[in-house]
Write a protein that binds this DNA or RNA. Structure first.
Lengths: 115, 115
DNA sequence: TTCGTTGTACGATGAATGGCGTACAATAGC
DNA sequence: GCTATTGTACGCCATTCATCGTACAACGAA
């Protein structure tokens, strides 16, 4: 990708805010992303999700998720690898992520990881 | 209050949507309201919360909470009594409400029930 | 009946949001 | 070196959102 030499910044564990996290999760597209990341452990490129939006909108959603502290992004070559910040979330808001994920409707599973 | 003869409508249990619930909870003011309602069992008038916003903004937030299915509103005289829809939420999204409430910072408790 | 209380309705406003297209930067591969 | 891939940046747009002020409706109490 590009990164334009800007370092990828993430909030620290203690900076995580409940409102921000809930807001990040309140969008269906972002909920799909998180649900997919949660389903399989590991790192996934942005492009590996088949989302119902364009590339640029995707970038936007990943940015929101990152800034809210839900995901970690790491640059590798031209792609950006995404990981769920399970541990940090669990430490700050115990049980929140698993509970929300359990409530995600299966219809959101349409966002299958294609790669 | 007024009600203007409009009946108060609520979504049914099966109509509750995760995104809407999370969105409703993603605002600090609404989170305070819900936290306060959760702390004490029972019905509370809108005016019994000391919130950092004006009356009209309050009305707005209570409406959002009601339309998302988080609270139940019942008219009694000039006031409107609010209750948390614990059972419905628990049935539809098990564990969600308790988990979120547990994550609410104490600073939100500033919104004390005055009456 | 006349206030005072409680809360809604409506309209305005500024900020944020989600969406898109285009341009381009960085790297991988040929 | 050239090209394809991956993803960001930026600008634009329409919509939603949180907030407020004012007006007013409904009811209780004096």
């Amino acid at each position: 990708m590009s990164v334009t030499t800007e370092p990828i910044s993430h909030p620290t564990r203690s900076e995580l805010e409940l409102s921000a996290v809930l807001h990040a999760l309140s969008d269906p597209v972002r909920l799909m992303i998180v649900a997919e990341l949660a389903k399989n452990q590991g790192e996934y490129t942005c492009g590996s999700f088949s989302l119902p939006v364009t590339k640029s909108t995707c970038t936007h959603h990943f940015k929101v998720l990152r800034e809210a502290g839900l995901i970690q992004q790491r640059q590798q070559g031209t792609s950006r690898l995404n990981t769920l910040r399970r541990d940090d979330l669990e430490a700050r808001f115990p049980g929140l992520l698993p509970t929300v994920l359990q409530a995600v409707p299966d219809s959101a599973a349409v966002a299958a990881v294609t790669a």
